[in-house]
Nucleic acid binder design. Structure first.
Lengths: 121, 121
DNA sequence: CCTTGACTTGGAGCGCGCTCGAAGTCCTAA
DNA sequence: TTAGGACTTCGAGCGCGCTCCAAGTCAAGG
């Protein structure tokens, strides 16, 4: 069950342009090809694309995603390093989340002051 | 009690370059000047810079911060619109926060699978 | 008087992450 | 046979938010 680039893009919630870009950027390896030269994505590809979009949407830079991908391709012995990379990222995301929440509290406070003065809105 | 640009930058946690950029970008209005032509920031300036950095670090685009600033300068009658702008932003930030947390859960799950296979790390 | 250092301006440059355009290939259906 | 449409590659372009540079001004201290 192999998917075309547009099917994969649809499924992953990114554009076909982005999928090609990711491949060029070293985030995807050895995407299969149909006889016509067109890309065909396997379920494993899709699972990885799905995970990498999670890394991306938590703000992991492309470079670091590539690093993670390269470790994964290098074999099982890199699991400790992959773990460390993911844990470091998680910590950063949590810190960022906390920071955002603090800022949001300030904004909420401001909203309250407006509401008090503009009861109707 | 007026501050120099470097004092203000220090206090706000941004660079002096950034403060000048914000001014050029229309986020700050009428920053005072010393006789020498050097900028002098008032406490009101600092309070606004402080709030705008909160908007920025919750991801509000420069354009929208400017819009908010312009409304504030236009007078009290714009309070309902400012309120609406802030509320819309808050909703977006909350949605983004929720999305990030979902992605983080996936990453945490992956971390767990690594930990299970690499008990020492 | 001269140096030092913080400041000024305008504009250029940069890093990131896409996003798009042009020109070409291939398959399918009318 | 031909038209349409989905795909290919390579490289250029873009939007954002800074970040920095060059050349100049000014005030204070030695």
């Amino acid at each position: 069950m192999e998917l075309t680039i547009s099917e994969t893009a649809e499924a992953a919630g990114v554009s076909a342009h982005t999928l090609r870009y990711y491949e060029r950027a070293g985030l995807l390896r050895a995407v299969g090809r149909a006889g016509s030269g067109h890309r065909r994505y396997s379920e494993r590809d899709l699972a990885w694309i799905d995970f990498l979009t999670k890394l991306r949407s938590t703000g992991m830079p492309i470079r670091q995603v590539r690093r993670y991908a390269e470790l994964a391709w290098a074999g099982e012995h890199t699991e400790p390093e992959r773990l460390a990379l993911l844990e470091a990222h998680r910590d950063q995301v949590r810190a960022q989340l906390a920071e955002t929440e603090r800022c949001l509290a300030r904004i909420d406070f401001k909203i309250d002051t407006y509401r008090e003065r503009n009861p109707s809105a």
